[in-house]
């Protein structure tokens, strides 16, 4: 083997091992790589119990209930299959609205309520002018129904 060939084999081998090791680590920590759980995962008991976690999904249409005179708000987060009710007291981000993707950070209480201390809006990858969005709406394809 020429020295050049040896260096190439060493580097390729090193990279292959490195990629394999990284892939193993990422698979092992799969749970920790998830930014949020879906309501379905929580209902199925896949989320860690008694630990702080994030739940993500769409705010169900017509589910936002505010307590008059306070910042307390309750809304349902859905992945179009299962639904979980989130309780939160604080200022909601500008993008927060019914039908919008959100991620809430907090704890599942014993009665199944998700008590959040942070709510972030999650934007999807679609960009369009308002007229196009209206047109889609009229044709029965609301633009913000994806959950990626």
């Amino acid at each position: 083997m020429t020295p050049r060939r040896r260096r190439m084999v060493a580097m390729t081998g090193g990279l292959v091992c490195l990629v394999a090791a990284t892939a193993l680590v990422l698979t092992a920590f799969e749970q920790n790589m998830l930014y949020f759980y879906t309501p379905t995962q929580i209902a199925a008991g896949e989320a860690p119990e008694g630990r702080r976690l994030r739940v993500g999904g769409l705010v169900e249409q017509g589910s936002v209930r505010r307590t008059p005179g306070s910042l307390e708000v309750r809304f349902d987060v859905t992945d179009l299959d299962q639904t979980i009710t989130v309780a939160y007291a604080g200022i909601l981000p500008d993008l927060f609205r019914e039908g919008q993707g959100v991620v809430a950070h907090g704890l599942v209480s014993t009665d199944g309520l998700f008590e959040a201390d942070e709510v972030l809006a999650r934007h999807d990858e679609n960009y369009m002018p308002p007229e196009v969005a209206e047109m889609l709406e009229e044709r029965g394809h609301p633009p913000d129904a994806s959950l990626r």
Binding site: L26, E30, M33, L34, Y35, F36, Y37, T38, G56, V103, L120, R122, H123, D124, E125, N126, Y127, R148
Partner: peptide
């Protein structure tokens, strides 16, 4: 690969 706050590719 994972659920994330950052949106997917446009």
């Amino acid at each position: 690969w994972w659920s994330s706050l950052h949106q997917g590719p446009t």
